[in-house]
């Protein structure tokens, strides 16, 4: 009986270890694979030209691979999304952590969780049906598609991440700090923006950066609302194509160097995401250090 118990124990342990290894191995293989598939492009195309040329004509004669318009597109929509979502998300997060009663906060929490669970294609549909006509009418954009519409859709998609992390970080602020501030005669609002927010800053920033990662990696929703034109974005109403959209649009028919160039686009995206993740880890470590 005892031996079978310890057998179970060790089996379970091995299964879990294997699962843990599996995720590490997946990351490793994905990285190796993308680089292996994408790097050979630099035999044909100068890396500087690939990154900083704005001419993308993979099926032209001669083919040209410049992904600057797509990088700029990704940056435009991501920054646009954050400009819209950060103030709203901070407000909601502060409200949930500090102002709302428990019932209200609970309700908001489940709504935010629901928002996070909606598939991105639904956001895309919503953006196309509901947001693009508004952008067309209010901002006089002829097609109603482009950077602004994509930013609004992405802003809604990043809200849940930033809101929940803001709330958690605010709740993690030691009670002593808050009580001390209130005891010194500061009002509730003063306490929030002079004490609570500064002391949870790293956590909130980590949330924002995480939201940024979501925005930059999103494909389906932006594909439906950004217009997908191969052009350098010139302003908020300009049509655009992001790195992810470029991979998704061209993958199905690309051959030879063109196909390789999409993996190289993947490398660039991968490096963007890696940078963002490292920033998140750094910030959350800082947040934890401060707490202890």
């Amino acid at each position: 009986m005892k031996s079978s118990k310890s057998f179970m124990e060790s089996t379970v342990e091995k299964v879990f270890l294997f699962s843990a290894l599996l995720s590490v191995i997946s990351v490793f293989f994905i990285t190796v694979f993308i680089f292996k598939e994408g790097l050979p492009l630099f035999k044909v195309v100068n890396p500087l030209e690939f990154l900083f040329s704005s001419k993308w004509s993979p099926t032209g004669e001669p083919p040209q691979f410049g992904i600057l318009p797509f990088m700029m597109g990704s940056i435009w929509v991501t920054v646009g999304a954050l400009i819209i979502s950060v103030p709203i998300a901070l407000a909601v997060g502060i409200f949930m952590a500090e102002m709302a009663n428990e019932k209200m906060a609970e309700l908001l929490r489940s709504v935010v969780a629901l928002l996070a669970g909606i598939p991105s294609v639904i956001y895309g549909l919503f953006g196309y049906i509901a947001i693009s006509p508004i952008v067309r009418r209010v901002f006089g954009s002829p097609s109603g598609l482009g950077v602004l519409t994509a930013s609004i859709v992405l802003a809604i998609m990043t809200l849940p991440i930033i809101i929940s992390i803001t709330e958690v970080s605010l709740r993690a602020v030691p009670h002593e700090l808050k009580e001390a501030s209130l005891a010194l005669g500061a009002t509730h609002w003063m306490t929030i923006y002079r004490v609570m927010i500064p002391s949870s800053r790293s956590g909130i920033l980590a949330g924002i950066v995480l939201g940024m990662g979501r925005a930059i990696g999103e494909t389906m929703a932006v594909l439906m609302v950004a217009g997908n034109a191969v052009t350098m974005p010139k302003g908020p109403l300009s049509l655009t194509r992001t790195l992810t959209m470029n991979i998704a649009t061209d993958m199905k028919y690309a051959a030879d160097d063109h196909s390789v160039s999409l993996f190289t686009t993947g490398i660039v995206l991968f490096i963007f995401i890696l940078g963002i993740n490292m920033l998140v880890q750094y910030l959350s470590k800082k947040a934890v250090n401060k707490e202890s």
């Binding site: 097609s143 598609l145 217009g227 997908n228 034109a229 191969v230 052009t231 049509l239 194509r241 649009t249």
Partner: peptide, 8 residues
């Protein structure tokens, strides 16, 4: 033209 929205 580059300023055309692309549909698939």
């Amino acid at each position: 033209t580059e300023n055309a929205a692309i549909v698939t």
